[in-house]
Design a protein around this nucleic acid. Structure first.
Lengths: 225, 225
DNA sequence: TCAAAACATTGATTTTGATCAAGTTTTGCT
DNA sequence: AGCAAAACTTGATCAAAATCAATGTTTTGA
């Protein structure tokens, strides 16, 4: 069984990469996989944080709720992504955000005590996580800067370009509902609709069925502003 | 000399806390202190990142510049704070932000190679930095959420309350120019002026000379919006 | 497969907060 | 201490995008 879990979860996760087979088997023993259906809450704000979550299949969204009830999508976890690590270093830490499955999903869990043992046992692991956290800090800094300094139009254009680049294609598929994209970009679904239409009218993109978007004029998008 | 540097910089830095005197002396040997005058750029976006900076005295601001030239203040470093660590794990990383002294300052520098040796030598160090980075991720997530979901008025009110709480006083001193506070909160100096005046008119705060603000009605501030 | 629910679009209106401009005060350098 | 430069304030105007509302279109789960 343990070997099976390791197949499912560990192979996917960059931070565990290049550990030996034997090590992976050890780690697999402390991993608990869960089958979850769409809409399942993995954790809530204020709850005690004592588990690392690794997504094996499906999609999980991490978001915060503002005092006024508005939702802010912080990140989408895809297979191989993980979350909760920030809570594992200091005891008695609570979550600030929510984690909820967007589709049916398989999620592997590692409990704090087990994970802390792993950290001591495999010091390279700390360095891997450091580098992942450092990347996330940079990503969040960019996000904050864009939200406060660029217009919605520019943010959307940059998002489309980034997403297309990441997929190395010019026909990208929006990885989430426009409602969620709106909270991610700090705007509303209505504004997204309108801006996409105006990009299309300007000949920068073409909107295809099923959330697919074809980029026709990169430079046009780049210089909206 | 080295012992002197250690006095100046190391004692202040939480991540080095609880290391032995001998260890601190070792570390002190690789630390290079710099006397800098106000307005000095420590690093710029695009430049290669190969140094960890520890602030010994004075204040340093970390900010990004948007394509349209607008500035986004990301964080203010006070004595004991450090920056640049994200760049130390992967080689050939470049800066995305700018670091500039706001006042005359003393800044200690540790070069990448030296720092990497320290990480190997003192594994606890990685864990400390992990916890600092995790805290920064949480702080940035909150920042992003607030900027996208709350009004300027609410953000400013929350900032005042947070700052007062941190200082455990109800007469806080704004730690930066309003111009910088404006970019931090994602607004303009004009709007800050106006909102502070309206808070004062409503009896929530009292504006005192020298950037000091007395909070008169916490609940009033809390329920603006 | 179908109906209900969730999601998306389009239009009209309103609001927040940015911008521009012109004074006033504060700061910091010699 | 004195003075130039930077920072701040206040007012008038404008623009971007949110909100409200009504309709159309996908999704999804029974």
């Amino acid at each position: 069984m343990a070997t099976h879990h390791y197949q499912e979860c560990l192979k996917l996760v960059p931070i565990f990469k290049s550990l030996s087979e034997a090590d992976l088997t050890t780690i697999a023993a402390v991993i608990h996989p869960q089958q979850l259906k769409r809409g399942t809450i993995l954790y809530q704000a204020e709850a005690e944080a004592n588990t690392l979550y690794i997504v094996d299949a499906g999609q999980v969204k991490i978001y915060q709720l503002a005092a006024n009830g508005r939702e802010q999508l912080l990140r989408l976890l895809n297979p191989g992504d993980f979350d909760g690590e920030y809570a594992l270093f200091t005891a008695a830490e609570t979550h600030r955000s929510f984690a909820e499955t967007v589709t049916a999903a398989t999620v592997c869990e590692i409990r704090r005590e087990d994970f802390q043992k792993l950290l001591l046992q495999y010091p390279q692991l700390s360095l891997r996580i450091l580098s992942v956290l450092a990347a996330r800090v940079q990503q969040l800094e960019q996000q904050t800067t864009r939200v406060t300094t660029e217009t919605v139009e520019t943010r959307l254009a940059l998002y489309l370009l980034d997403t297309a680049d990441a997929a190395k294609t010019d026909t990208l598929k929006l990885p989430m509902k426009k409602k969620d994209l709106a909270t991610y970009l700090g705007t509303t679904p209505e504004t997204i609709s309108r801006k996409l239409s105006s990009f299309e009218a300007a000949g920068y993109i073409e909107q295809l069925p099923q959330k697919r978007i074809k980029i026709r004029d990169r430079d046009g998008l780049l210089f909206v502003s």
